[in-house]
């Protein structure tokens, strides 16, 4: 095993790293021969010993006590603070923008369908006007 693999193991495994004999044979063998990784084991062990447990859960009544504290802070609007479901996504702003774009496209296509079927207002003049007023379209249309 490489030093990087052993150090990743020490960080992520959650194993009892105080006892070399309890570790996988290749990890134990590496640690016995590598002073750098042995030293890193000491650091991770210290971090674990000196920090709280990773399995802690909030004690019962956490929400009620939080509500009481919120009530004592009138500057915080606590009635029903909400946040969009998009916030949980990796690129929330992009997701929201995509939805708006999709809805706009759907509305545009519906309007165009109305034009071609003759069942809606005639937007061709408006579209034509937009085209000629938009310098980007003009550039696209220019021949090299």
């Amino acid at each position: 095993m490489t030093c990087r693999q052993v150090r990743d193991y020490l960080r992520r495994s959650g194993a009892d790293i105080a006892h070399l004999d309890n570790l996988p044979a290749d990890v134990g063998a590496h640690l016995r021969s590598c002073t750098g990784c042995l030293s890193q084991r000491r650091v991770v062990w210290l971090m674990r010993m000196g920090s709280g447990s990773e399995t802690g859960v909030p004690p019962p009544g956490f929400e009620e006590r939080l509500r009481e504290r919120l009530a004592a802070h009138p500057d915080i609007v606590s009635d029903d603070p909400t946040v969009s479901i998009f916030a949980g996504l990796a690129r929330p702003a992009l997701a929201a923008a995509s939805l708006v774009l999709a809805l706009s496209l759907a509305a545009f296509l519906s309007a165009r369908a109305g034009v071609f079927s003759g069942g809606g207002p005639d937007l061709s003049l408006l579209a034509s006007t937009d085209r000629h007023a938009d310098t980007i379209f003009d550039d696209w249309g220019a021949e090299p």
Binding site: S51, G52, S53, E54, G56, V57, P58, F62, E63, L66, S78, D80, P81, T82, V83, S84, I85, A87
Partner: peptide, 28 residues
């Protein structure tokens, strides 16, 4: 707002994560 997280949703979803991180530094 449809599809929004309320106060309860927000706390329920994140309380364990936040408590666990705080517990790393403050074991009591």
């Amino acid at each position: 707002m449809p599809g929004a997280l309320s106060f309860d949703d927000l706390v329920a979803r994140w309380k364990v994560r936040v408590f666990r991180l705080a517990g790393r530094f403050f074991p009591r």
